[in-house]
Design a protein around this nucleic acid. Structure first.
Length: 217
DNA sequence: CAGATGATGTTCT
DNA sequence: GAACATCATCTGC
């Protein structure tokens, strides 16, 4: 089957549903160092009426792209150190996005490990995923690559340079690929969002059930 | 294991 | 000046 770009319509649904639609999709990024990709296994929804959202106070230079068309990248710098990557969602003008919080590494594992400063035990082959997923040390190293919003941007080489990128094309980078098959609703877990001080009760964090690559169960 | 802490710079009040 | 959609590393059970 040919890889398909992500369907824009699924990102137009009102929050928090758009963030659910991203689970199972594949994020791909090609740089001069090589190509990395991973399956989206954890997201969080943010929207304009949400006190925890960057768009709560209206449009600013930083959050401007969140008001743009669903399918653009919103990237921000935080805590003086970290980059976080979002997919703009919702209808144009609405100030919504989904934070990508964790990936299941798919390709470019050696490059991810190098960028993250993680040692892959027993070599650096992508075969590790199939050969030794039951090995504790291997699983721990693989999980350390992308199990958090700032870990995955470091592993994928994503930063402020990709702010505003259109993600829904076959050739661009970074880009989104549609899920191999739709994720059944019964396989999605909703919990309160992580690391915020406001609106902590909204259950707008979503992750794949039983997936070892999420930032937190 | 849980909980505390420092790193570090941009953004907005 | 405070807050920050975080992480690695440290302490003490």
């Amino acid at each position: 089957m040919a890889p398909r770009p992500f369907a824009a319509e699924t990102l137009l649904a009102a929050q928090p549903h758009a963030a659910r639609h991203l689970l199972g999709a594949v994020l791909v990024h090609r740089t001069s160092e090589g190509t990395t990709s991973g399956i989206i296994v954890e997201t969080e929804a943010y929207c304009e009426s949400d006190p925890a959202s960057h768009t709560f106070g209206g449009s600013t230079p930083r959050n401007q792209i969140m008001f743009g068309r669903a399918g653009h990248a919103y990237v921000y710098f935080t805590y003086g150190i970290h980059w976080c990557f979002n997919v703009v969602t919702g209808p144009e003008g609405r100030g919504e996005a989904a934070l990508i919080r964790a990936l299941q590494p798919l390709t470019g594992l050696a490059l991810m490990a190098r960028r993250r400063g993680v040692a892959l035990p027993g070599g650096s082959s992508a075969q590790l995923i199939r050969l030794a997923p039951e090995d504790r040390a291997v699983q721990r190293a693989l999980t350390a690559l992308c199990s958090g919003p700032a870990k995955l941007t470091q592993a994928m080489g994503l930063d402020g340079r990709v702010y505003g990128t259109w993600l829904l094309t076959r050739r661009g980078t970074p880009r989104l690929r549609a899920p191999e098959r739709p994720v059944p609703a019964t396989r999605i877990v909703a919990t309160p969002r992580i690391g915020i001080r406001k609106a902590t009760a909204k259950p707008w964090r979503f992750h794949l059930a039983e997936n070892p690559y999420v930032s937190r169960p």
